[in-house]
Structure formats: C-alpha cells, structure tokens
C-alpha cells in the first residue's frame, strides 16, 4: 500500500470541488446550490491544511482555513437571507425560474 501523502489529500479535495461545481450548475433549488458552495469551500480548506502539513510555512494555512470558515458562515447567513427574500418575492426558490433580469 502506498504511503498516504500530499497527493491523496489533493485528490480528495479535487473531487469535493468538482462535486461542488456540479451541484452549483445542476441543482434547481437555491439551497442545494448553497450546499455546493460549502463543498467548494471545504475543498479549498483541505488544500490549505494539506499544504501546511506537507509544506514549511508555519501555521498560516490553518489561519486561512479559519478565516474561510468564518466567511463561509457569514456567506451562508446572507445567502439564506437572500433566498428567503426571493422566496417571499417570487414564491419559488428554483433558480432557473429567477430570470427577471433578462427582460
């Protein structure tokens, strides 16, 4: 069995990232789109931490990951507020029906 190294973690993070993108692109429900965004952020965090572990930069990567988590919390709050507002305005949360910008 090969020893688990940097690449293994990177592969996991890439897979998470791809699935996040997939969720963003394909899901109709805005909340699932948000879940995709969270997946992407998690992928980025895994990268940060993995590089910190295998690189030689001190703990800055951990700090970055913490900042990302904080910002993700803020983002989730705001995004849900927006979703609620959209729901109140248009009575739907399906993004493909939200295209009034087109007209």
């Amino acid at each position: 069995m090969i020893e688990v190294g940097l690449n293994h973690f990177l592969v996991v993070s890439t897979l998470l990232f791809s699935m996040g993108i997939y969720a963003i692109v394909t899901r109709k429900n805005a909340i699932q789109v948000l879940m995709g965004v969270e997946l992407i952020l998690n992928a980025a965090n895994i990268n940060f931490i993995a590089f910190t572990r295998f690189g030689n930069f001190g703990l800055q990567g951990h700090l970055m990951a913490l900042f990302v988590i904080v910002l993700a919390a803020a983002e989730a709050a705001i995004a849900l507020a927006i979703v609620l507002n959209i729901y109140k305005t248009l009575s739907t949360v399906n993004i493909d029906e939200v295209d009034s910008l087109k007209d």
């Binding site: 993108i21 963003i24 692109v25 939200v98 007209d103």
Partner: peptide, 14 residues
C-alpha cells in the same frame, strides 16, 4: 445566449 439564468452562465464559464 443571454438566458438570464445564472447556472447557464456558470456552465459557460466552466
């Protein structure tokens, strides 16, 4: 091309 749907745009971006 401009459908007004965000997700279409993202596909294009990808």
């Amino acid at each position: 091309v401009q459908t007004g749907k965000v997700q279409t745009y993202i596909v294009l971006v990808i």
